[in-house]
Design a binder for these strands. Sequence first.
DNA 1: ACAGTCGATGTAATCGATTCCACGAGGATC
DNA 2: GATCCTCGTGGAATCGATTACATCGACTGT
Lengths: 339, 339
Amino acid sequence: MASIKDVAAEAGVSVATVSRVLNDHPSVSAEARTRVLAAVETLGYRPNAVARSLRTDQTHTLGLVISDVLNPYFTELARSVEEEARALGYSVIIGNADERPDLQDHHVRNLLDRRIDGLLVSPTDGGSPLMLDAARGGTPMVFVDRWIPGVDVPVVRSDGRAAVRDLVAHLHGLGHRRLAIIAGPAATTTGRERVEAFREALGAYGLELPDAYIGQGDFQAESGRRVTEGFLDLPEPPEVVFAADNLMALGALDAVRARGLRVPDDLALAAFDDIRWFVHTDPPITAIAQPTGELGRAAVRALVDRIEGRPGQSVTLPARLVVRRSCGENPTPVQRSTT
Amino acid sequence: MASIKDVAAEAGVSVATVSRVLNDHPSVSAEARTRVLAAVETLGYRPNAVARSLRTDQTHTLGLVISDVLNPYFTELARSVEEEARALGYSVIIGNADERPDLQDHHVRNLLDRRIDGLLVSPTDGGSPLMLDAARGGTPMVFVDRWIPGVDVPVVRSDGRAAVRDLVAHLHGLGHRRLAIIAGPAATTTGRERVEAFREALGAYGLELPDAYIGQGDFQAESGRRVTEGFLDLPEPPEVVFAADNLMALGALDAVRARGLRVPDDLALAAFDDIRWFVHTDPPITAIAQPTGELGRAAVRALVDRIEGRPGQSVTLPARLVVRRSCGENPTPVQRSTT
DNA sequence: ACAGTCGATGTAATCGATTCCACGAGGATC
DNA sequence: GATCCTCGTGGAATCGATTACATCGACTGT
């Protein structure tokens, strides 16, 4: 592969001049510029990004560590992140943690070794030593969706509190009184927050959230299935299950189906995170939708701000309830005004 | 960030010795090794992968350019690719082409500039000049799922012919005679092949595939919706629609639903690529399942073989039909023996 | 006419690693 | 006791870019 020296030789100039042309530095003669450009063309030369990064100490690359690529919420997030990053002149390297802290650490380390300019993380746990060091250390960082408390890093996320209240209002209106939740890992902020928001919303109606109605999941489908089976085995099973993400909702559907039961007649179902398939499931699933694309874009903007020396804002956007038929028929149209 | 020089100073040895310890070169004294390791520990030193790559001309990185991250088939592929690559000591950088040739070229160029060790591509088109150059040029390359004919690059893919025959047998057995297909772009191999396989299979039953029953899609949901609407507007609409991927099947569902029609009574539906949600859609969707994980792993093995100087085999694995209820009730269990 | 300025260019240092080569000490061989 | 290896080590070149600094010619202003 041709290097800058080859181009310089071909054009009959020094490597400095070639570099100047490539980075369009002002003081290059038109003459030299055309000769260099011609040489670049004939040799099919492309600058070596590795060498360039070593010298400039910039990779123009963002690292994105997401919790699970198989979760449509995170792929949508990843897509919007890449899109916005590209628009701002950055590439993105994605690391998939599969909800495993060890894998998450592996990717963070790998990205740091590659000297990415900044890191976008949706942490799967409360923060390993490595993650905390990275956050405190030099690398610009932004949390997206989930975050780690007590660390001075901007957070871009969505607030589901109001939407959860709307959901509970909807469920209560349909006559449901025994409401259960499939929670995410307590080590994650979204794992805890969604339970708390649910409990608070229930409280407003004088309802309790007994421990038996809090199933411990891990944001993966299999745990949703397992927890739902547990609920169904209870002497007094819940009337509604609220899954804290879409994959656990899928697992819940598997469990209900395996028993030959029906949603919503035997068990109503709602989920956090809306995905396109929820429109076509049997029945269509009531869900809380996050402004995923906007979240991804805002996160990139915040990170690039930090990288380029500007402050870098935390952002919180509201989620909203999308009512479908999985919690009961003839739903009262409870929608929040925010779009 | 600490460099190898800092470590050398801290340990009281030369950088050469530090490098030897880090790459466990045999001729280093136990004494020096422990001193270096201690210095590494106290400084929290991590080798700069950029510098290392520049010197060794190896990045231990694979590029993966996929057609669409929002397509669950490709995310599953990406996941298995990353998994196998990690097991073999490589990282993966994913580029999402969104089914757009220009974006695909952007990512290929970007990956080449980063001097990745090898490239895994599922091309969105017949091959841009850049792609062809890359294939012929030095970079080891392997095609996965889709490929470009006439280029000497190993191909790892799945053969759906037998499964499509099974599908048509199933449909014919249910009494369907007017069968339509939502095709992928003619510029992609999978776009063409699936139509051809379908046509051939129909031929075996003396059925035609008229042009009006071939809808041109682009593997995205919106095109599936549009094409299906066209089918429904025909004076003699088809009885079955076979979508060449899962996203176009989603679009077809949208279209059917928008008209207040029902699957399979008003229109039967089948899809290429099986996904977990197909079990829970209304009705569950009959699909052709690819051994996606195995495909990804085989592709990585082939690519790493090439990178490390071994031949690099093409691999073709069979797909299989999974019958559900979207083509009609009481299905004859047509299953191929292969798992 | 001469000093000063400016624009274009080249030389060389530099980024952080790897690795060839030379060198010195110590042990084995005769 | 001289020679020859072997082993551990350090110095320095190298990878492919960027960029500070020096140089040189031409032009300008007085």
